[in-house]
Simulated assay, not measured.
Amino acid sequence: VLADGSNWNPGSGAGFYGFRDSTWKLLESQASTLSRVKSYSFKSFAASSGTRYIAGFYELVSADLNLDQGSTTGTMGGANAPYAAHAILVAGGPGVASGGTGGVGVITVSGTSVTDEGVRTTSDSEVIVSDTTAMTTDQYFETTLKWLGQVTYTLSQNGNRTTFDADFNVGFVKYEDWGNQDFTINTFEVVGLAGANDASFDISLCTHSADNWTYDAASFTFPANIIVSMATVHSTESDLDNKIPFAFKDVSLSVSITGSADQPTTTVPNGYLIQIVTGANGSVQFLDAHVSGTIN
């Protein structure tokens, strides 16, 4: 049987026990059974230099949405695309709600949702901002639902306001959370083979959180909440040389990820991604990345 070590501790802490000779004996400690390694692969193709992600993705729209009482909807995503990702919003500041006697702006995301259990729901919706007048510049919002295909952001108001508006950026995010579990990352390792010379290459392990997002009316992009970066650690010895292998490893990490959280905060990340930056087309012939840690 499994003991959690707190509600029931047969004598040696959390772990698996068997009953023999009138006593409970530890068969295997819980710590050893809850270690995990997740692995990911990447290859850069022709005309593919730039910033890419594995273990998740950021799919963002560069230009912001400017909604008001005369134009209340905007869209994100391509029809029938299998994103299965959270919709996000980064505010350009507080929205206006005036005229009439009361009410505030509300932003709702609608479309086809899908759960981690594989339940697909058409015509679903979720309020992503319940009061646009309380939004602050660069504030991050994320739906708990995941979406398929194109979604619609709708600005409405919950009173009798005659004038209301909101400016904000939108996108989809997908991140690794080890099956909605809380865990601690302790190791990041990379090994690969270069397919071209590249003096701009870098690979980083990044947290997904609500921190460091910046609203931009024309050039919205993702934050780099970097845990560890090869270019930072290796410094000048981080260039790729054609047909030469490369590697990176850091076993000194101790990063807590609250994967059970429906949404991240500015201080509590609920997932991670691996960011790969290439400056030359086809510079990564192949790359394998491994993230190790323990379930909390």
Rank of each mutant, 00 (worst) to 15 (best):
residue 3 A to Y: 11
residue 7 N to T: 15
residue 10 P to F: 08
residue 11 G to Y: 02
residue 13 G to P: 00
residue 14 A to Q: 12
residue 14 A to R: 13
residue 15 G to I: 06
residue 19 F to R: 12
residue 20 R to C: 05
residue 30 Q to H: 11
residue 32 S to C: 07
residue 38 K to G: 07
residue 41 S to P: 01
residue 45 F to I: 12
residue 46 A to F: 03
residue 49 S to Q: 14
residue 52 R to E: 13
residue 53 Y to I: 05
residue 56 G to R: 06
residue 58 Y to M: 08
residue 59 E to V: 07
residue 60 L to T: 08
residue 62 S to C: 05
residue 63 A to R: 14
residue 63 A to W: 03
residue 76 M to C: 10
residue 79 A to F: 08
residue 84 A to W: 08
residue 89 L to R: 07
residue 93 G to I: 06
residue 93 G to Q: 05
residue 97 A to M: 04
residue 98 S to M: 09
residue 98 S to W: 10
residue 98 S to T: 14
residue 99 G to P: 03
residue 107 I to Q: 01
residue 108 T to S: 04
residue 109 V to R: 00
residue 110 S to G: 09
residue 114 V to M: 14
residue 115 T to D: 11
residue 116 D to L: 11
residue 121 T to S: 12
residue 128 I to Y: 05
residue 128 I to K: 02
residue 129 V to L: 06
residue 133 T to N: 09
residue 136 T to D: 12
residue 143 T to Y: 00
residue 144 T to Q: 12
residue 161 R to I: 03
residue 166 A to L: 12
residue 169 N to M: 03
residue 171 G to M: 04
residue 177 D to Q: 10
residue 184 T to Q: 13
residue 187 T to N: 13
residue 187 T to F: 08
residue 187 T to V: 10
residue 188 F to L: 04
residue 189 E to S: 13
residue 190 V to C: 11
residue 193 L to D: 10
residue 199 A to D: 13
residue 207 T to F: 03
residue 208 H to D: 00
residue 210 A to H: 00
residue 210 A to L: 04
residue 211 D to E: 12
residue 211 D to W: 05
residue 213 W to F: 09
residue 214 T to M: 09
residue 217 A to L: 09
residue 219 S to Y: 10
residue 222 F to K: 11
residue 231 A to E: 15
residue 233 V to R: 11
residue 233 V to A: 11
residue 237 E to V: 09
residue 238 S to V: 04
residue 243 K to R: 12
residue 243 K to Q: 14
residue 246 F to A: 07
residue 250 D to Y: 04
residue 251 V to P: 10
residue 251 V to M: 13
residue 252 S to R: 14
residue 260 S to L: 08
residue 263 Q to M: 07
residue 264 P to W: 02
residue 267 T to C: 06
residue 268 V to H: 07
residue 271 G to Y: 00
residue 274 I to H: 01
residue 278 T to Y: 00
residue 280 A to R: 14
residue 282 G to F: 03
residue 283 S to V: 01
residue 284 V to W: 03
residue 284 V to P: 01
residue 290 H to R: 15
residue 290 H to S: 15
residue 293 G to H: 02
residue 295 I to H: 11
